[in-house]
């Protein structure tokens, strides 16, 4: 087990080092995310009450879209020089390969979300930072879930010609519960109610937020365990 974690760490560190050097995925994903946010600001009317209702959805749609693009590109990188074949051929447990990729992709998706969330807060004047630690937890759990399921299928689709269209076709139906839970948790944290003067003030609904955070936790855990168990059977032809 210890060796699985060490080897996974090596693979993840290798990915992050490559990314830090080229910054290709992070720059393009973040730019794409920012573009989405700009498009939202034209697509949705910027009314205070509407913003509170729509902002959580914007955040998670952005994560879904830029996440899929990032995952696709991260695995393209392993395809370019056939390095995925080399990784699967290494005398380490295959689930170390999976775990390593999942870790580095979690970091990528997370980084992009952390770029987009402040942008949404800025453009829509949304109070995203009032419950920052809780919101961060929601985003971390969401990113991990996207990365886990994304890594399994991106690795399985590596040799398929139409992988770019098939990845979202596979991921989105499976990730719906995650997106809904993430949106609901975010919405619960952003809940506001009018004070005595009739002005909206933040009034986070913590029980609801916790419920959805736990949901995300169980979701991530279930699919992580499933991925550990099934990854090797899926990537071996």
């Amino acid at each position: 087990m210890a060796s699985i974690v060490t080897q996974a760490g090596r693979i993840a560190w290798k990915d992050l080092r490559i990314e830090l050097r080229s910054r290709e995925i992070i720059y393009t994903m973040a730019f794409f995310g920012a573009l989405l946010v700009v498009i939202y600001s034209f697509a949705f009317p910027a009314k205070a009450d509407l913003v509170r209702a729509a902002v959580p959805g914007m955040l998670w749609v952005t994560m879904a879209f830029s996440g899929t693009i990032g995952i696709g590109r991260a695995f393209d990188r392993e395809r370019e020089n056939d390095t995925m074949r080399a990784l699967l051929l290494a005398p380490i447990p295959r689930l170390a390969v999976f775990f390593g990729k999942a870790i580095s992709i979690t970091a990528l998706v997370l980084a992009v979300s952390l770029v987009c969330a402040p942008l949404i807060a800025l453009f829509f004047n949304a109070p995203l930072f009032e419950e920052a630690p809780m919101l961060l937890l929601v985003i971390v759990l969401g990113s991990a879930g996207i990365a886990v399921i994304g890594s399994v299928f991106a690795a399985t689709l590596l040799k398929v010609r139409s992988r770019d269209v098939l990845l979202p076709v596979i991921l989105y139906p499976l990730l719906v519960p995650l997106f809904v839970a993430g949106t609901n948790a975010t919405a619960a944290l952003l809940t506001a109610s009018p004070n005595i003067d009739g002005v909206l003030v933040s009034d986070p609904n913590f029980p609801a937020a916790w419920y959805w955070i736990q949901f995300l936790g169980f979701y991530d855990l279930a699919f992580l365990v499933l991925s550990f168990w099934i990854f090797e059977s899926l990537v071996i032809e």
Binding site: R17, I18, R77, D82, R85
Partner: peptide, 8 residues
């Protein structure tokens, strides 16, 4: 293919 990473 070289099986090596271009950025390393």
């Amino acid at each position: 293919a070289s099986l090596c990473y271009g950025e390393l």
